[in-house]
Simulated scan of single mutants.
Amino acid sequence: MGRPRQFETDAALELAMRVFWSKGYEATTLPDLLGAMRISRGSFYKAFHDKRAVYLAALERYNRTRVEETVTMLQSPGTGTGKERIESLFKALSERPDRSGCFLCNAAVDRAPHDPEIEGRVNAMVQRLEQGFRRALEGDRPDIEPYLLDEAAKSLVVSYLGLQVLDTAGLNAQMAESCRLQVKRMLEAAVGEGKTAQRSAATAVNANPSGNDSA
């Protein structure tokens, strides 16, 4: 009997998330949630207690689904190089037909400034995405300096979240393509720096193959 209840809970949270996503936390009322989740008032209070608990559960569901899927894709070496996976992600975002945006971005603006617990969860999800980008890059260039990986990963997270915010605002095709090109240049620059570092190390070894310091 436990599995059907869990399935119903997940389905109800998905519907509740859409209400919070579209209306915002403060504007969402209990009748809004009851109608969307298709549960009685008694079932609501038994399962979630209050609106904030539903919001936290919906945010965690977004973490377990959307964020998890993105991070898994970025870290899956069987689906191309890290650079190719990153470019594929941005291509899919820029070509998405709807303007749904991102619940993580929504929470960062709508609730994180007012609720320390939500702020912590938002930051944790952002860090998960950053780590996903970092590992994708690291898989292509294990020789690159850690600080360069960190900078590139942070820049990619900013572009990833920014693209979705602009998408919600009606991002046009030209702006989406511009964002994709900027990401492509960023990745090419990171690859170039990795190769330059590798060539520099190889040159140093060839110049002094014994490894002895001439000084």
Rank of each mutant, 00 (worst) to 15 (best):
T29C: 08
G120Q: 10
V205Y: 13
V19S: 03
C105V: 06
A169T: 04
A169P: 00
R64I: 00
R135S: 07
S155P: 02
F133N: 00
A190Y: 12
M37G: 01
L166N: 09
S178W: 14
L93T: 08
A197N: 08
R180V: 02
L129A: 00
E26L: 04
K23W: 06
E119A: 12
R99K: 14
A47Y: 06
L74Q: 06
G211E: 10
A11T: 08
M37K: 05
Q182P: 03
V183T: 10
I118V: 15
A16E: 04
I86E: 01
E138V: 00
R66V: 14
L56F: 11
S200V: 15
I144H: 11
M175H: 14
G24W: 08
G132Q: 01
E84S: 09
S94K: 08
K46N: 10
V126Y: 03
P113V: 01
A124M: 06
S155N: 14
F103G: 04
L129C: 02
V67Y: 07
G162A: 00
L171M: 15
A11P: 02
R18L: 05
I86V: 10
V205A: 13
I144R: 14
F48A: 03
R85I: 01
V71R: 05
R3Y: 07
V122R: 03
L187S: 09
V19D: 02
Y160S: 02
A153Y: 04
A16F: 03
A207E: 12
V157T: 08
Y62D: 12
D110V: 01
